[in-house]
Computed example of a mutant assay.
Amino acid sequence: MPYFDSERGRLHCRCWSVDRPAARLALLPGTGQHSGHYHRFAAALRPTGIELWTLDTAGQGLSEGDPDAPGTIDELTADARGFLELVRADHPDPPVLMGHSLGAATAAHLARENSVDLAGLILCGTPRRVADSAPAPGLSLLAVHGVDDRRAPIDVIRLWTARHRSVDLREYADAGHDLLHEPVQLRVAADIAQWVLTAVR
């Protein structure tokens, strides 16, 4: 179980390794979630050759920090940058970055800063604040979203993707905010895997 030091303490991440992976997916969880919550997602990706790395945000899982104070977007982005450095330590090829909810906001912020170090970007349960800005230029972007998401209503993301045709939006009926833990999770994982393998070619 890898750890790395950030300005806010020692942070933990988890890797579900794959022999000779076809791609690496680095996931930033949402508020109150940690890497251990994503074992089913990792199991769904494994047959496709995708290796999943997931960060424990500060204060969650095995990471140091205050669980009630995840940090500012700049602090979260700095932590995510350290996480990506660890993912790439032995693997120079750029990973695909994914974020859910608060993790999506962090991932989008990081990608706008430095998209050249990423093979692609996936946003899940994307918050309204992400839709107030443009996507990272030149970066392939997939948005997966539940039609019944009450925490991050899909109408905002539909308008955002209509303005920015570089974003590939996949909608899931009868699904809410936490797509990777809902009945549609296997379909979402299959769509993500197919998109990731295309993005890294």
Rank of each mutant, 00 (worst) to 15 (best):
V167E: 08
A107P: 07
D90P: 05
R170E: 10
G146K: 04
V167P: 03
I157K: 05
Q185S: 07
H164C: 05
V184P: 01
N114R: 15
R163N: 13
G120P: 09
I154H: 05
E113F: 11
R129A: 15
L186F: 01
L121G: 07
V96W: 12
G176V: 02
I154W: 06
A111N: 06
D148P: 05
A107I: 04
V87D: 11
R170L: 12
A108Q: 09
R150Q: 15
Q185C: 06
I122K: 05
V96T: 08
G176Q: 02
D148S: 10
G146S: 02
A131Y: 13
P92A: 14
D93C: 11
I154Q: 03
R158A: 10
R165G: 14
L97Q: 09
T161D: 11
V87E: 05
V96M: 11
H177R: 02
D148N: 06
R187D: 12
R187M: 15
H181W: 12
V196T: 13
G146L: 00
H100I: 02
A89W: 09
A193C: 04
D191P: 08
E182T: 00
V156I: 05
D93S: 14
C124W: 08
V147H: 04
L180Q: 02
P127Q: 03
V130Y: 01
L123A: 06
A143C: 03
A175L: 01
R187A: 13
P92H: 10
A189S: 15
L159S: 15
H181C: 10
R129N: 14
L123F: 06
Q194K: 14
Q185F: 01
A175T: 00
D149N: 06
P183Y: 01
L180K: 01
S115H: 14
H164Y: 13
A190G: 11
V147N: 07
A105V: 04
D148E: 11
V167L: 05
P135F: 02
R170C: 12
A104S: 07
A173C: 08
R151T: 12
P127K: 04
D149Y: 06
A193T: 04
G125H: 05
G125T: 04
V147I: 01
D132G: 14
H181A: 13
T126A: 14
V196R: 12
V147L: 05
I192M: 09
V188Y: 04
R165P: 15
R150I: 13
V144Q: 05
Q194V: 13
A107V: 03
T126W: 07
G146I: 00
E171D: 07
R112G: 06
A107C: 03
A136D: 13
A89E: 13
D191H: 07
V96N: 10
H91P: 12
A89T: 10
D132H: 09
I154R: 04
L141R: 10
A162M: 13
W160F: 09
Q185N: 10
G103I: 05
D148I: 08
L110Y: 09
L97Y: 08
R150Y: 15
D168F: 12
A190V: 05
I192E: 08
D93E: 15
L180W: 03
I122R: 02
A189R: 07
A136P: 14
P137G: 13
L110G: 05
G99Y: 06
R150H: 15
N114H: 14
L159Q: 15
M98G: 13
C124D: 11
R187H: 13
